[in-house]
């Protein structure tokens, strides 16, 4: 039986809201993610944000914040903070440092442990994030391939953003400012859902322009973003 999604989907919810009542639901599985909690027979909201639903049965609450709450499956930008025999300690803007096991690289063995100096910028995925434990990272996809993960080039600049801005940069349809700039300028970008994005281009000025334009666009509405983008593109041509 296909359950009807909660009528609060895509609405703003606040802590304490009950989104589903389990007592009148038939046997079925629900997957809850960030910001939701089962409290007896009801599903409660634990943080303010927008309730999201994905078929068939996944619920989570989306909000924008400066700190990142790790959750499994996220692709994040991390900074190596320390090296231990078993793990690299990586800062992913979370409440605790994350562990990146030295063997979780493509074809990783005891023989070929990569060397990262403090401050190396990595694109990694979160493998597990349990409360009370340091989150665990990996530089492999599920098939054990490096995929896109690993060290980012030692150039370019990493900008900070809120988690909401990072998510909108990754969303489809693409972020209007990012798309508009991409048509005029050539640059590389890597976005971590933990509120960091790395921009690289041939010229430093391009990196600075793109980074600041994206950061500034967060506080603008869609229409304002378009006006801002037009102004910006005109100023480049001059």
């Amino acid at each position: 039986m296909e359950a009807k999604p909660s009528n609060l989907v895509d609405q703003l919810v606040v802590p304490g809201d009950v989104i589903l009542d389990l007592s009148n639901m038939a046997n079925q599985t629900l997957k809850l993610s960030g910001g939701l909690r089962q409290d007896g027979d009801s599903i409660c909201v634990m943080k303010a944000g927008k309730l999201r639903f994905m078929k068939p049965n996944k619920y989570w609450v989306e909000s924008s914040q400066k700190r990142y709450v790790p959750s499994a499956g996220d692709n994040v930008l991390g900074v190596v903070v320390d090296t231990k025999p078993e793990n690299f300690l990586v800062d992913i803007k979370g409440p605790a440092l994350a562990f990146l096991p030295v063997l979780s690289f493509e074809g990783g063995t005891r023989r070929n442990i990569p060397k990262f100096e403090v401050g190396t910028l990595l694109y990694v995925s979160v493998v597990s994030a349990n409360p009370g434990m340091n989150p665990e990272l990996s530089c492999m996809d599920v098939n054990g391939k490096a995929a896109e993960y690993g060290v980012l080039k030692e150039e370019g600049y990493m900008f900070e953003s809120s988690t909401g801005l990072a998510r909108s940069l990754l969303s489809s349809p693409p972020h209007p400012v990012l798309e508009g700039l991409g048509k005029k300028l050539s640059f590389e970008i890597a976005v971590g859902i933990n509120g960091r994005f790395w921009v690289n281009a041939l010229q430093s000025s391009t990196v600075i322009l793109v980074g600041n334009a994206i950061q500034k666009s967060e506080s603008l509405s869609l229409v304002q973003q378009k006006i801002y983008l037009e102004k910006l593109l005109k100023s480049i041509q001059l």
């Binding site: 910028l121 980012l152 600049y157």
Partner: peptide, 20 residues
């Protein structure tokens, strides 16, 4: 803790007279 990228970039960009 700043990334190696950021440190290098700040120095390189300053050579061409701009800041982050």
């Amino acid at each position: 803790i700043m990334t190696v990228n950021e440190k290098k970039f700040i120095e390189n960009a300053l050579v061409s007279d701009i800041r982050v």
